[in-house]
């Protein structure tokens, strides 16, 4: 065991020493400045319309997510009840300990669970920490695996996104998410899962999430 540790330590040192020596003559290489980065991001977003929410909705729909708009978070249980109304004895997994968990689900006739089920009739309800207008992506940020599991395993993934949390770029969204402390899981999710691996034909869904429905809430969620 001691010998194994010694070997591990020596591999680390050998790799780093070798790498360091071989690039010594390149150390002056500059990283792009903040101005250069800002200029690129400005060029990348130059064609975006001024209505960030409308653009997010358009891009999200283009990624095969469904989108509905609500004026208040209190409308979420009823909206979700509508989405699963045709299903047989549906259960909605609500993993978050936050705002969604405290909503009056029972009043809307929605049966909730903590653990996700992969039955096609079941759904999950999770909250996005942010949205990205340039791509129509949702930012799912979580410390525990409950939220990613609900996102991945459910028959239908319903994501609540407050309009005020829609950022223009990935970088803006990252800054917003990091300002609350970088969590162990930050997933930029753009539409349902997909694959082109079977005879190069695009198939949606692949392994999960199967369907995504975004509820964009106008009311400020902060």
């Amino acid at each position: 065991m001691a010998a194994a540790r010694l070997k591990v330590a020596s591999s680390r040192d050998t790799i780093l020493r070798n790498a360091q020596a071989r690039v010594a003559h390149l150390r002056g290489q500059a990283s792009p400045s903040q101005e250069e980065r800002r200029a690129v991001l400005s060029a990348l977003t130059s064609g975006l319309p001024s209505d960030r929410t409308a653009h997010f909705v358009e891009r999200a729909r283009a990624s095969d997510a469904a989108v509905s708009r609500l004026s208040s978070v209190s409308e979420v249980p009823a909206a979700l009840a509508d989405l699963i109304s045709g299903a047989a004895e549906p259960t909605v997994c609500v993993p978050d300990a936050g705002a969604l968990r405290d909503l009056p689900w029972a009043e809307a006739g929605v049966r909730t669970a903590r653990a996700p089920s992969s039955r096609h009739d079941d759904a999950s309800a999770i909250e996005a920490a942010a949205g990205v207008a340039e791509s129509g992506s949702l930012v799912i940020s979580a410390a525990s695996h409950d939220t990613p599991q609900a996102m991945l395993l459910s028959g239908q993934t319903v994501v609540v996104l407050f309009e005020s949390a829609i950022a223009t770029t990935f970088e803006d969204a990252l800054r917003a998410v990091r300002s609350r402390g970088l969590r162990s899981r930050v997933v930029f999710l753009t539409g349902p899962s997909r694959t082109g691996d079977i005879a190069s034909r695009l198939v949606i869904p692949a392994q999960g999430p199967r369907r995504i429905h975004i509820l964009v809430v106008e009311e400020d969620g902060s």
């Binding site: 992506s137 939220t147 162990s184 899981r185 930050v186 997933v187 753009t190 899962s193 997909r194």
Partner: peptide, 30 residues
């Protein structure tokens, strides 16, 4: 335009109702 998942994973995270990692190992290969 963008991949469906862009996942930024920092540490193993906390185990959930359906399990999940309690350990994360990163093997750096030369």
């Amino acid at each position: 335009e963008v991949t469906t998942f862009t996942s930024v994973l920092t540490g193993p995270g906390e185990r959930g109702e359906s399990g999940g990692p309690e350990a994360m190992h990163i093997v750096l290969v030369d």
